[in-house]
Simulated scan of single mutants.
Amino acid sequence: MRNMLITGGAGFIGSNFCHYWAEKYPQDKVVVLDLLTYAGHRENIQSLENSTSFAFIQGDIGDQALVEKLFTEHQINCVIHFAAESHVDRSILGPDAFLQTNIMGTHTLLKVAKKFWLDAGVANHHFHHVSTDEVYGSLTEDAPAFTESTPFAPNSPYSASKAASDHLVRAYHHTYGLNVTTSNCSNNYGPYQDSEKLIPLIIQNILQGKALPIYGDGKNIRDWLYVEDHCRAIDLILHKGKIGEVYNVGGENEWRNIDIVNLICAKVDAAVVASPELLVRYPHTPCATSGDAKSLITYVKDRPGHDRRYAIDPGKCHAELGYHPVESFESGIVKTIHWLLHNQRETVNQ
């Protein structure tokens, strides 16, 4: 039985993982620690709070006294570390918060884990660190995809802070013997994602009849991973992964940003037109007046240091874990659009 501390469990990927784990492993205890910043929403996990095996604590991963209290009270033997400042644009405008949370916050968790596990002689423990493919830098269009041995070359304050946290996790394994694993994932999408990210932003703006901002020429390429596939990968890493190892988790779905936006425009238009209820609920969307969502596409100045392409070689996950994504981008985006159409936050119609 696991007593799990899930940091950032009210955020996008963390909340999806909480739902996934509660359904698949109801015998395990799940304790969520989340500061509930702009990207964390308690309602994401509210349906889980009736369970006696689930607990929510609002707090900072950098608060060592609080983290130690949770380890003591809940006899934590497994940490899944999602909590992070994660938006590149925000890191450009204000990098300090990224260094504080992603580096110092991670270090606080590692210090507490060492104290309560290694120093106390607890052999059966696991610290899993969730990271990003952005630590590897940028690829040209014809370059081979990132592998676990690709040198780090972060290009934004966000990716630099995540690279630093990856190194700390590695160091705590090699120096102290902490049982750790790390996963570096590609761009996630799906339910509960904050509206500042590309896919929910585009969907929300279509529904509001607002401009769809596209950086530069729109040809930046990302590998997209449906969030539940990411949860499956972490599950496999926890059960089959080798301690001390890094696993790159990809969706095997490389798309140009502009192609994603065009696809979403067509899918949202079709979904809204097919539903009289949605036409009434979202009167400002172009198709409510016989328009076309693509008319909202607006090219804007590229952001500084914008990485051109990310791509993950998932060979290690295939060979060692038997992992393959279930969702294609086409199937995953349909599920995502349906969820967002029926679960928009109150800000949409304001």
Rank of each mutant, 00 (worst) to 15 (best):
V32C: 12
L33A: 13
L33D: 02
L33F: 00
D34C: 05
L35K: 02
L36R: 05
L36H: 09
Y38C: 10
Y38S: 05
H41E: 04
R42N: 12
R42I: 15
R42V: 06
E43M: 10
N44Y: 06
I45Y: 13
I45M: 08
Q46I: 11
Q46M: 11
S47K: 04
L48V: 11
E49A: 11
T52P: 02
S53E: 00
S53W: 01
F56T: 05
F56M: 03
F56A: 08
F56R: 07
Q58Y: 04
Q58H: 12
G59L: 06
D60E: 14
D60A: 03
I61L: 14
G62F: 12
D63Y: 03
Q64C: 01
Q64R: 12
Q64P: 05
L66H: 10
V67D: 13
E68L: 01
E68N: 05
K69F: 09
L70D: 07
F71C: 00
F71G: 08
T72Q: 08
E73G: 06
H74M: 11
Q75E: 13
Q75W: 01
I76Y: 02
N77D: 15
N77P: 11
C78S: 01
C78H: 05
C78T: 15
V79Y: 06
I80K: 00
I80N: 10
H81T: 04
A83T: 10
A83N: 00
E85K: 06
E85D: 11
H87N: 01
H87M: 03
V88A: 01
R90I: 11
S91Y: 04
I92N: 12
G94S: 14
P95W: 11
P95Y: 07
P95Q: 13
L99M: 09
N102Y: 02
I103D: 11
I103A: 13
M104G: 10
T108N: 14
L109R: 06
L109T: 13
L110P: 14
L110T: 15
L110W: 15
L110H: 15
A113C: 09
K114G: 04
K115T: 05
W117T: 09
W117Y: 08
W117G: 06
L118M: 00
L118H: 10
D119M: 13
V122H: 04
A123T: 08
F127N: 09
H128C: 09
H129L: 12
H129R: 08
H129V: 11
V130Y: 00
T132F: 01
D133K: 07
D133Q: 04
S138K: 10
S138Q: 00
S138F: 10
L139W: 15
A143L: 10
A145C: 13
